[in-house]
Amino acid sequence: MLPQAVLREATDRKLFDEVVGRERVTRAELATATGFSKPTVSESVRRLTEGGLLAATGPQETGRRGRVGTFYELGTAAGWVLAVEVDQSGVQAWSADLAGRVLHRHDRPPGGAGDTGALAEALRATVSAALRKPPAGPLRAVAVSMANPVHPDTREVIALPRSPFPEGLLSPGDILADLVTAPVLVDNDVNLAALAEQRFGDATSFAYLYVGAGLGLGLYLGGTLVRGAHGLAGEVGYLPGAGWRTLATELAAAGLGRSDAPSNDVAAVLRALDAGTPAVLMALVAAVARAVASVTAVVDPEVVLLGGPLGTHPALLDPVRAAVATLSPSPTRLDHGTLGALAPLHGATHLALDHAVAAAIKHDVPG
């Protein structure tokens, strides 16, 4: 049997999520929705209210004849989280309440190519701007999405040879240590995007192929995100290319990237795709199709979702489908992700929220 404290935490989390999902609800409605007894609901709501996560809005009519009940909703001072995305386009961030509602956005452009110091300063400036305009309540977690692999145990950014994002080889936790007291959570951008897509979709076995400045893959198989023993699962940019060492260097050599790293120039490629430039489209389609064919041959997912600023371009989907059909025997569907280029930031938000709510409930539940 589970310890009583664990059961209480699970009950509180279930009821908190139910309140957030409904926005405003009575204890009787919570009991009906969850199947918990009324005494269990009352005790849980009391703990959540005393901890500041929920607030009672006062007795009001419930809509049923003669019935008046106290409604509960997310507490105005329950706290907030900060989600940050660090990639070749700079630093993007937004603050959100514990219901996941975005409150303020803060962005900074990148520094020079390969300039780690400038990127670190942009990260600090972005977080500092968020702290100067804080929502009500405590900052409970900061989640940082990095466009580099992250070790699954240490959560440190992993340096790989010929990284598409060499300036991103930094430690967000160290950079922000003197700015925030809340936990700083770090994960890979493509893994976070895959987690966010899983929250919004219905597939239990899918591959999320991010096509942007680099190529990356998130694998969600059997209800589990596959990270690999060293956090390197899905580094498809290192797959062999056609006549070049890797897919990433092949794209860079085709004129899609910058000279100091095998990284696509996203703005330039988007302009070329918008203009219908055949050479750019053909080079990108060939690389993406080989990556998709390799993935489907190994793991056979239900669907492959294309994401990222280039992967979501409408000109890419149909040609990649046609190319994959000639390379792979798998009947795997190919489609766009539902969250577009913001999927990593949504994933960072979910990471921060999961940690923040779990920690707040654990703290608020008496031992």
Rank of each mutant, 00 (worst) to 15 (best):
G90D: 03
G63P: 11
G257T: 07
L53I: 09
L54W: 03
D202L: 09
A55C: 10
G79Y: 15
R46A: 09
L334W: 09
A159M: 06
V142I: 10
G347Y: 01
P314H: 05
L185D: 11
A120S: 07
V226Y: 13
T116W: 02
F16Y: 13
D107E: 15
L239Y: 03
S128Y: 00
S42D: 14
I361Y: 07
R124Y: 06
P329S: 12
A360L: 06
P319H: 02
A233S: 14
G51M: 02
R13D: 09
P161Q: 08
A325W: 04
S44Y: 06
A279M: 03
R245H: 10
G237P: 13
V157Q: 00
A229H: 15
F165D: 02
T32K: 01
G216S: 10
L232S: 10
D335E: 15
L225Y: 07
R64E: 15
E85H: 14
R101S: 14
E50M: 04
A275F: 11
P138G: 07
Y72L: 00
E197C: 02
L7K: 10
L221Y: 09
Y72K: 00
L316C: 00
L195W: 08
N148I: 04
A55Y: 04
A323I: 09
V45N: 09
L176P: 01
E73M: 09
D187T: 00
T32C: 00
S205V: 01
A177R: 13
A293R: 02
V180W: 11
L232F: 13
G58H: 08
V157Y: 01
G308M: 04
R227Q: 15
G168V: 00
V81C: 02
V269P: 05
V324N: 15
G90R: 07
T312W: 00
L251E: 03
K14D: 14
Y210T: 14
P138K: 06
V6K: 05
H355K: 03
T126N: 00
H151K: 06
L284M: 10
V186G: 01
G52F: 01
R155V: 01
G112S: 12
V299A: 11
R199D: 12
V184E: 08
E9R: 14
P59D: 03
D318S: 06
L103K: 03
A233N: 05
L98Y: 13
G223E: 11
R47F: 08
P39I: 11
V6Q: 12
T338P: 12
V304T: 14
A120N: 00
A83K: 06
A229E: 15
V298P: 00
S89Q: 13
A143T: 01
R46N: 10
P172H: 02
G111W: 10
D260N: 07
P138I: 04
V150T: 03
A182S: 11
R65I: 11
L221W: 06
D97M: 10
P183G: 02
L351K: 06
G112E: 15
V19W: 08
R124A: 07
L256K: 02
